[in-house]
């Protein structure tokens, strides 16, 4: 209410300043590795440290000249886009189910829809590897897609569910009342309303898939995605390339996230269904 005025009696300037400094330190810790990776991706040194060497694009060139990296990037993009589409479709269905229906065993349904990301990736990776190789689906891009959809669908579900909860619960019923069938109401009311969240979920799940390396490492076999390639570099100590790839992936992911953010807050903020049909 009146933080500034109350400050004079119930707050202590020294404490406030110390806390602000602490916030800055916290963010410094979080962003130090991100910033360093960015800076050193343009640095010539083989073993990066300070003082900085001279500006150089050699690591980008090295990465760009590596056919395996290109292969990895193609795999990543293919996997990411496919995962995004499937996970968003599944997540939408689950979000709508939770929004609209009550049924016996719904708790179990929701648990299945939300728990996977909390299982450690090593365990999930191992389980996927063992299971998928048993049913002869391991060692290719398809196996990565299957595994990534499992952990991405919950994110899509959460994002779209949040949007649906902002919808007037009578909206759908009103559409029925005006003669729309369930399918028509879905197409003309629910989907347009949830559209920003659907695209948001699409981009977020793509970004999650782009960054996931552990499960992909277990199940991908020879069809390595880019993050798995990075894991390989990390083992092989041919390191500064990681910075170049990391910066590239960061820029890509952030573009997707910001796009999602714009969609979720920009048009999403309006509390009525978009009527672009």
């Amino acid at each position: 209410m009146s933080d500034k005025d109350t400050a004079s009696i119930n707050r202590n300037r020294a404490v406030d300043v110390a806390l602000l400094v602490y916030i800055v330190l916290g963010y410094a810790f979080v962003f130090a590795p991100i910033a360093a990776s960015f800076v050193f991706s343009f640095n010539s040194d083989r073993f990066p440290s300070i003082p900085l060497g001279h500006f150089s694009l050699e690591w980008y060139q090295a990465v760009a000249g590596d056919p395996l990296v290109w292969q990895g990037l193609r795999n990543t993009l293919f996997v990411g886009v496919t995962v995004g589409v499937i996970a968003t479709a599944l997540g939408f269905g689950a979000a709508y189910t939770d929004y609209r229906y009550r049924f016996f065993g719904k708790q179990v349904y929701l648990a299945l829809a939300l728990i996977p990301p909390t299982i450690p990736v090593v365990i999930l990776g191992l389980a996927m590897l063992a299971y998928l190789s048993r049913i002869s689906l391991s060692g290719n891009a398809l196996s990565v897609i299957i595994a990534h959809v499992v952990i991405c669908a919950p994110f899509a579900m959460a994002i779209i569910r949040l949007r649906l909860s902002q919808m007037d619960p009578d909206l759908e019923a009103a559409a029925w009342n005006l003669g729309a069938s369930e399918w028509a109401a879905m197409r003309h009311v629910i989907v347009p309303f949830a559209k920003p969240a659907i695209f948001g979920a699409l981009f977020i799940t793509m970004a999650v898939s782009f960054d996931e390396f552990a499960i992909a490492w277990f199940v991908s076999g020879l069809n390595e995605t880019l993050p798995v390639k990075v894991l390989g570099f990390l083992q092989g100590q041919v390191s500064p390339r990681i910075n170049a790839i990391g910066t590239f992936v960061f820029v890509t992911s952030m573009t997707l996230v910001i796009l999602a953010q714009i969609l979720l807050t920009g048009r999403g903020a309006k509390d009525r269904p978009a009527s672009d049909e």
Binding site: A32, P33, I34, A36, S37, F40, A207, D211, F213, P227, V230, L231, L234, S239, I242, N243, I245, G246, V249, F250, S253, M254, L256, V257
Partner: peptide, 10 residues
């Protein structure tokens, strides 16, 4: 949305 691997390398 930044790679954990990249941060660890950093």
């Amino acid at each position: 949305f930044t790679s954990y691997l990249v941060r660890v390398y950093s």
